[in-house]
């Protein structure tokens, strides 16, 4: 048994009742779900969604050390500036700027449920959008990274801890025979982040060689790394 919800009812959007039911399942069960912290529990749920709040860590875009930005293996830390804003304080998002944030809540999804995070309508009506990549895969766990864009003409104050998005969950029709197999696979891409994460990229030549492009033009990078020479063999 994965859940008390009857098999024929497991389709479409999860109701708040189903979500709450799964939140109280043992963590060892593949159909268990976690949302922590779940603040103001009584008002956090709508009939078909759960409200999520803004976390305290941000990644602001910064001027990269070079005059261009190339998404590659070395780019992870060069494009973002980490900022921490404790609860009770705010961060200013200038007009037409975007910042990466994360939800305050750590989510563990179930093996047979996918989700979508949407901007709360009250937030969206202030011309602030939180997601351009809103899909959450089954079995995902971690705080959700949000791409928060201020598309208004005014600087916006963002307070960590305030409600910013709502998560809608949907059943994924996993074949009964493959349930245990699907439940056992934990994907390690973006596994368990608690802060907003910069994307990990491979070098373009690697990505393109996978589709048969033999030659890729890349800009040589200046490097500070010392060349490690193999140890010299002792002369006899």
């Amino acid at each position: 048994m994965v859940s008390k919800t009857a098999e024929h009812e497991r389709r479409g959007v999860l109701t708040s009742h189903e979500i709450k039911e799964r939140l109280l399942l043992d963590i060892n069960l593949p159909s268990s779900m976690v949302i922590t912290p779940l603040l103001e529990e009584k008002t956090a749920f709508d009939i078909d969604s759960v409200d999520l709040r803004l976390g305290t860590h941000f990644l602001f875009p910064r001027v990269p050390p070079r005059a261009y930005f190339c998404p590659d293996e070395d780019s992870k830390d060069s494009f973002h500036m980490r900022v921490h804003v404790p609860l009770g304080d705010f961060v200013v998002l200038p007009p037409h700027h975007t910042v990466l944030g994360a939800t305050l809540e750590f989510i563990k999804l179930l093996f047979d449920v996918a989700g979508e995070i949407l901007t709360k309508s009250s937030v969206a009506r202030t011309f602030t959008l939180i997601e351009t990549a809103p899909w959450i895969h089954p079995n995902y766990r971690g705080c959700l990274t949000l791409e928060i864009a201020n598309v208004s003409n005014t600087a916006m104050l963002l307070y960590p801890g305030r409600r910013i998005g709502q998560m809608v969950l949907m059943h994924v029709a996993v074949q009964k025979s493959k349930e245990s197999e699907v439940a056992a696979i934990l994907d390690n891409t973006y596994f368990g982040p608690v802060y907003p994460e910069a994307p990990p990229f491979k070098n373009p030549e690697v990505d393109l060689s996978n589709i048969g492009i033999p030659s890729v033009r890349v800009i040589p990078k200046p490097t500070w790394r010392p060349t490690i020479k193999p140890p010299k063999k002792k002369k006899r």
Binding site: L25, I27, N28, S32, V34, T36, P37, F106, K108, F191
Partner: peptide, 22 residues
Amino acid sequence: EAIQKYLGWGVVPATLVNNGRA
């Protein structure tokens, strides 16, 4: 044991469920 179980599944062990209660 519950905390370790949560960590073993890669989950933040802040809200622990035991016998249907958090």
